[in-house]
């Protein structure tokens, strides 16, 4: 078998497959702790990345007919994105480890030739201290780039920096 097919950039016109309602993971009637997740994406110059697609995927709560576990949102002219979803619980890790509650992130954009993967964790959750990925990041400033902060009741915010000062920790999955 050949190797996996190569990625190519999503380009600036991916909005042809955008459906704004996909940013609301509760739209099929999911029950649970509803949260809003927002953020802002900036490039190496600090300029907003206005044409990015942000995707979230969560293994918890488990996917069912009422909860797709997956969402996609556009960045607006200021680089801002917004989701509505259910707050995840912890997820089993490898071996006997547990992972702190988190969302998986994938970012696609013009100038990004293959998906950029990252994660969003929830600042202040005591389970972050024993999370295998967070524990492996020894530089507190780098670790901080994965921590969303609650800026209002049930409203979590995480800025994403593609390059340079405060660059987000990106992952090879």
């Amino acid at each position: 078998m050949p190797a996996a097919t190569a990625n190519q950039t999503i380009g600036p016109y991916w909005h042809l497959i955008e459906h704004a309602e996909w940013a609301d993971l509760t739209r099929f009637g999911a029950n649970g702790e509803v949260i809003t997740v927002t953020g802002c994406v900036r490039d190496g110059d600090g300029a907003p990345v206005a044409d990015a697609a942000i995707e979230i995927w969560q293994a918890d709560p488990p996917v069912d007919a009422a909860f797709p576990g997956f969402g996609r949102a556009r960045c607006d002219a200021e680089g801002r994105f917004r989701f509505r979803t259910l707050k995840p619980g912890p997820v089993a890790g490898r071996g006997n480890a547990w992972q702190a509650p988190h969302l998986a992130l994938a970012l696609h954009a013009r100038g990004v030739l293959k998906p950029l993967f990252s994660r969003l964790y929830f600042a202040g959750d005591p389970r972050n201290e024993s999370d295998p990925l967070l524990s492996a990041i020894t530089d507190p400033a780098r670790r901080e780039t994965l921590l969303a902060h609650e800026i209002g009741a049930g409203h979590w915010h995480l800025d994403i920096r593609l390059q340079g000062a405060g660059e987000t920790v990106f992952l090879t999955v």
């Binding site: 089993a92 490898r94 013009r110 990925l133 593609l162 999955v173």
Partner: peptide, 24 residues
């Protein structure tokens, strides 16, 4: 367009967990 949009720090490898092994 990759000039200001590529990460400069090394990516961190995460092992395959339920998060990566499952999908929508």
């Amino acid at each position: 367009s990759t000039a200001k949009r590529h990460p400069q720090a090394a990516l961190i490898a995460v092992p395959t967990t339920l998060t990566e092994a499952n999908g929508p």
